[in-house]
């Protein structure tokens, strides 16, 4: 046990050293090459290592996340503006204490699952938050560019310009973003007619990534169930761990690929069947990237200027040639 622990510590220390070294030499030619700050980052969540911090009132990752983010959510106006015509608002300001689901005040929670697999009963604790997709529809089709995927890999909502229309939640395969009504810029425009608050979710501690630091949840985890680092190194490590435990990956292919890789000792379909799902509690089922079906037409759009220019040149050349070749007599054929 001790040997194993020592070995485990040693391996973890080695991994940390590797990640640090990789960060320190940089990943490319960006302006942050020396520190790795700002480079594409991924996160590994090793489900086999997370125990949900049973000794704590609130798991360490959640605690750290809330300490960093809770103060940034403004207090909503009272009363909330009436939303025409449906009148539906979402207000979590009286439920800030909730830590067992995603809310505008809680961007990370532990999903619990009891699973039978390989003749063994597994009590699993799964940290859940935004997956930070490689090509996130929540960001690309935000009508106001209030949501954006940054070079760090973090998908970040700018709460200063978000209208809270919840389009991002609708197109997110996991319905991650959570709305708080009564806050944000929509209050200054036409709160009854347009917008309904601000959407909130994990931003992967984008500000810290820019400084070359880890997300706070990663640093807070006492069991190193969460790791973050250069994208390719983390992806390779996730594959290695999954192979070693005969386990499974989630997030590598989902929604076209994400910056979050779950390594699980049990099949994901069993976890998905076991977890409680609903608002603020996302599934863990396979996900196809819905936007993929728009890519062909999008490529046609990108080609259309060349098509129009070419057609115009050919048609004009034909018209000019016809004009030169024709004579008044020919044109006035009876």
């Amino acid at each position: 046990m001790n040997d194993g622990k020592k070995g485990g510590i040693s391996r973890r220390a080695l991994l940390k050293a590797t990640l640090t070294a990789a960060l320190s030499v940089g990943l490319g030619s960006s302006g942050h090459a020396h520190t790795g700050a700002g480079c594409a980052v991924a996160t590994l969540i090793d489900i086999s290592r997370c125990d949900g911090c049973p000794e704590r009132e609130t798991p360490a990752c959640i605690q750290a996340c809330r300490q960093k983010n809770l103060l940034h959510v403004p207090e909503p106006v009272d009363p909330l503006p009436k939303v025409f015509p449906r009148g539906k608002t979402e207000d979590f300001s009286g439920r800030k204490h909730l830590t067992d689901r995603l809310t505008p005040y809680n961007y990370l929670f532990i999903h619990k699952a009891e699973v039978e697999h390989g003749g063994k009963r597994w009590s699993l604790n799964i940290p859940r938050r935004c997956m930070h997709c490689d090509n996130p529809a929540c960001a690309t089709i935000c009508p106001f560019a209030a949501n954006h995927k940054h070079k760090t890999g973090a998908v970040v909502i700018d709460s200063d310009i978000c209208f809270g229309g919840a389009k991002c939640r609708t197109v997110c395969p996991w319905n991650i973003p959570q709305r708080q009504s009564g806050v944000g810029i929509y209050l200054q425009i036409a709160p009854t007619l347009a917008g309904n608050g601000v959407m909130f979710k994990c931003d992967l501690c984008h500000d810290r990534l820019l400084e070359g630091k880890n997300p706070v949840c990663v640093d807070a985890c006492p069991r190193e169930a969460l790791l973050s680092g250069p994208r390719e190194i983390i992806r390779a490590e996730a594959r290695k761990r999954a192979d070693r435990m005969g386990g499974h990956l989630y997030g590598r292919e989902e929604n076209g690929g994400t910056a979050t890789l779950y390594v699980s000792p049990v099949p994901l379909e069993k976890i998905d069947a076991a977890i409680e799902k609903g608002p603020g509690r996302p599934h863990m089922a396979p996900v196809q990237r819905r936007m993929a079906k728009t890519d062909t037409l999008a490529n046609s759009v990108l080609l259309s200027p060349a098509i129009g220019l070419t057609a115009g040149i050919l048609a004009a050349a034909g018209a000019l040639k016809g004009r030169k070749n024709s004579s008044p007599e020919e044109e006035r054929k009876p």
Binding site: T294, L297, A298, S300, V301, S304, P305, I307, G308, L309, A311, G312, I313, A315, A316, A317, A319, L320
Partner: peptide
Amino acid sequence: HYAASVIFITVSLFHVVYHVLQ
């Protein structure tokens, strides 16, 4: 939106080139 864009952009560019060249 994309499908309509293909027509819109193609014809707009055609329009410019076709008439400018003439």
